[in-house]
Amino acid sequence: MSRIIAGAAGGTTLFSVPGDGTRPTTDRVKEALFSRLESYGVLQDAKVVDLFAGSGALGVESASRGAAAVDLVELADKPAATCRENAGLVNKILGRTCVNVHRAKVETFLLRVPADVLWDVVFIDPPYALTEPELATVLTSLAGHLADGAVVVLERSTRSPEPLWPEGMERFSERKYGETTLWFAEPAAEDAGSAGDTAQA
């Protein structure tokens, strides 16, 4: 059972995807992730996109915590249906349509989104089976849609190598939680020179 941890919809129990076709972010990882994002000050009034959204738990948590608009992108039938259910729950609590669901392949969605659409927070939680070249294609398509100060959060297996960051995007931090690694990236600065940080939990 998954729930929204905090914010206007805090405590709300979310619908889960039937079966075992998805890999939900654990509550431990989710709590640590959102604590970090709130310390960055990037969630309030943010435009958020949750790619490979699964149940949409990360996106709707963002809406609960003050994001202005959230896009959930999921292709598979059952997860997309669950995204719609969870979006409906949160939109009703918030009293407005904050969360929108797009049933689409992530690569196709990114190619079709208007050039002037920029996101402040991006969640990417692809299936572990997604290859590194396929992931690199997603990141390349995403790079031009990052607002100034944007934060990209990529969840991968700890056994996976560091992603191939495209031109215009750079990693600034990494956190390990058991079998899960969260990679944090941002728009590349012209004079980028910081080494970032690495930590294990």
Rank of each mutant, 00 (worst) to 15 (best):
Leu142Asn: 00
Leu111Cys: 06
Val121Asp: 03
Glu85Thr: 06
Asp120Cys: 08
Tyr128Gln: 07
Val117Ile: 07
Glu132Met: 12
Val90Trp: 02
Val122Asn: 04
Val122Phe: 07
Arg84Cys: 08
Pro114Lys: 15
Thr82Pro: 00
Cys98Arg: 04
Glu85Ile: 04
Val138Lys: 03
Thr82His: 04
Thr97Phe: 04
Ser141Phe: 06
Val99Pro: 00
Tyr128Glu: 06
Ala104Asn: 13
Pro127Glu: 12
Leu118Arg: 14
Trp119Glu: 00
Val117Ser: 10
His102Ile: 11
Ala80Gln: 03
Cys83Met: 11
Pro114Leu: 15
Val99His: 02
Thr140Gly: 02
Ile124Cys: 12
Thr137Ala: 14
Leu89Gly: 01
Asp125Pro: 00
Glu85Val: 03
Val99Asn: 01
Thr108Phe: 15
Ala129Cys: 06
Glu85Asn: 08
Leu142Pro: 00
Phe123Leu: 10
Thr140Val: 06
Arg103Gln: 15
Arg112Ser: 11
Thr108Leu: 15
Lys105Trp: 11
Tyr128Thr: 05
Arg103Phe: 14
Glu107His: 13
Val122Met: 05
Thr97Tyr: 05
Leu130Glu: 04
Arg96Trp: 12
Ala81Pro: 00
Phe123Val: 06
Gly88Asn: 05
Leu142Asp: 00
Ile93Trp: 13
Arg112Leu: 14
Pro126Glu: 06
Val113Pro: 00
Ala81Glu: 14
Thr108Gln: 15
Val106Gln: 07
Val117Asn: 07
Pro126Gln: 10
Val138Tyr: 04
Asn91Ser: 11
Phe109Gln: 08
Val138His: 03
Thr140Tyr: 03
Ile124Val: 14
Val99Thr: 05
Arg96Leu: 09
Val122Ser: 06
Ala115Ile: 10
Gly95Val: 13
Ile93Pro: 00
Arg84Thr: 08
Glu134Ile: 07
Ile93Tyr: 11
Glu134Met: 11
Leu111Thr: 06
Val122Lys: 04
Pro114Ala: 15
Arg112Lys: 15
Ala129Gly: 05
Ala104Tyr: 03
Gly95His: 12
Asp125Lys: 07
Thr140Gln: 11
Thr97Asn: 10
Leu89Gln: 14
Pro114Val: 14
Phe109Ser: 06
Cys83Ala: 11
Ala136Tyr: 07
Leu89Asn: 04
Glu107Asn: 11
Gly88Ser: 08
Cys98His: 05
Ala136Asn: 05
Ile124Glu: 01
Val90Lys: 01
Glu134Val: 05
Thr131Pro: 00
Ala129Asp: 09
Tyr128Lys: 08
Glu85Asp: 10
Asp116Glu: 15
Asp120Gln: 13
Lys105Val: 09
Leu139Val: 03
Asp120Arg: 09
Thr82Arg: 01
Asn86Met: 11
Ala129Ile: 09
Thr82Phe: 03
Ala81Tyr: 03
Phe109Tyr: 15
Val122Thr: 05
Leu89Thr: 04
Leu110Cys: 02
Val90Phe: 03
Thr137His: 08
Ala129Gln: 11
His102Thr: 07
Cys98Asp: 05
Gly95Glu: 13
Val117Ala: 12
Val117Asp: 09
Thr108Trp: 14
Glu134Pro: 00
Ala129Thr: 10
Ala104Ser: 14
Arg96Asn: 07
Arg103Tyr: 13
Ala81Asp: 07
Thr82Ile: 04
